[in-house]
Nucleic acid binder design. Structure first.
Lengths: 252, 252
DNA sequence: CGGTACATTGAGAGATATCAACAGGCGTGG
DNA sequence: CCACGCCTGTTGATATCTCTCAATGTACCG
């Protein structure tokens, strides 16, 4: 049996053209943005998009680079255009909890307080649109449709966080892993990658820190699911061999 | 040593005058609302408050009564005026995870989808302001200041959810309990009850379901913290005897 | 005073963590 | 082209925390 590495598509940012520029002017207009329909920008009309062009700066990050960190002053907001990001919190003794993975279209960095409550860094190569907090605040201030859009995204995020809460508090390792695979697959599906082959651009440690497990338990659980015929472990991802049973576990 | 029952103040809704009315007209105007400064209503001017008077209905719930349930159509939003509510999710097999406790000023029921993602019921007697979803949507639609206020509350809730996520995924039972006590105390403090005596209107099972533990573990952990001199267990609540050490545990 | 619901305590089981060893892929450099 | 080292992932043996099951205790209420 020959296993092919799961190639993540464009949304996961696996095309390796990386620029190191720190805030190049937007060579590409918002009007042509690939993730516009997914992001907060979906709420904007042509004029507003042109205005936004001047506010945002395209920035690229290499794998493992930090975009912003817990405790830092909130000076910018970010619209993720390409790639995957880890959002996490650290305890003083180094324990880490990943609160979520960000995908293209996600809007990051919102905070009531002056400082970021979480850290965010790039899983693979990442491209974002960066906005200065103050100018973005001015831009959004009097645009009810944009405010409603932000609202909508926040409610969705909150709902996701609540689901995650149930997973962490009340599910067994096997259910956590299955639930993660299904959830991740569904999110990718909304971006256009819809198969039962789920690319996992993040490593096992990331999965563990997301699910509140150790890396060993995640590894063992994957292996068990494979032995039981629910999944197949491929380099770079997972194939959901028996989708029904994985979904059953995830719902349990 | 004589232990006095911890009396929760007005915010916890322990004054037992309960009306069973199903949507009485607002006998009391929004302008005089005790929780206005805490709620989304803080963003409204006098005219808007009068308008809101006509949209909201005062409704009371008895202990354990359900305000809305997971899966139900989202027909109303709720502004909690008095009392404490449990917000939770159930797994098909009955496991329960409490995602949060609501206090006066909290705005409940927001959902992107047509159905509620969580259930909410009254811990003790509860008083809410109920708004029809559609009329509230119409009211808020073109009011940027109100939309910004809602965003602010959502961001705060999201941040709380993320903290909860870390607690569930990466903390030991002792840290969870300490963290819960500190967090609950801080929230009550913002409502005006600021002592080291923390009333706990919810039962042990609720605490357990909030912290992702069993009732026995919560009980044992309380007992251990008391034996170690960090807290004193009182009927109806907890006294933080050694605040420093409890906070150290909570931060850990 | 008995009943019921809630809380505490104990003993043992079980799930996951920890510690440790090993395997495989990949890039570097000889 | 192969050898080496590094990083990531897997597997095994044991420890530990929390759960489960069961009994007991306690407050509240009719």
């Amino acid at each position: 049996m020959h296993k092919v590495r799961l190639e993540a598509g464009i949304v996961l940012g696996c095309r390796m053209k990386i620029s190191l520029a720190e805030g190049e002017p937007n060579e590409q207009a918002c009007a042509d943005c690939a993730v516009r329909s997914l992001s907060i920008c979906a709420a904007l009309d042509r004029t507003e998009l042109r205005e936004l062009d001047h506010l945002g700066r395209h920035v690229h990050f290499r794998p493992r680079e930090t975009v912003f960190a817990q405790g830092e002053l909130t000076e910018s907001f970010y619209n993720l255009r390409e790639g995957v990001m880890r959002l996490y919190k650290l305890l003083p003794d180094g324990r880490r909890q990943i609160v979520g993975f960000a995908l293209p279209g996600d809007f990051l960095g919102m905070a009531t307080s002056a400082r970021h409550g979480i850290s965010a860094d790039a899983v693979g190569p990442v491209a974002v649109c960066r906005f200065s907090r103050s100018s973005f605040a001015r831009f959004i201030e009097d645009k009810p449709h944009l405010l409603r859009r932000v609202n909508e995204l926040l409610v969705r995020e909150l709902s996701q966080a609540q689901d995650h809460t149930v997973l962490l508090g009340r599910r067994l390792a096997e259910e956590k892993v299955a639930s993660f695979l299904i959830g991740w697959r569904d999110r990718l599906a909304r971006l256009g990658e819809a198969t039962n082959r789920v690319p996992l651009p993040m490593g096992r440690q990331d999965v563990a820190d997301f699910l509140g497990l150790t890396i060993e338990t995640v590894s063992r659980t994957f292996t068990k699911l494979e032995r039981d015929g629910l999944i197949e472990i491929l380099p770079g991802g997972i194939c959901l061999t028996d989708l029904e049973r994985v979904e059953a576990l995830a719902a349990a």
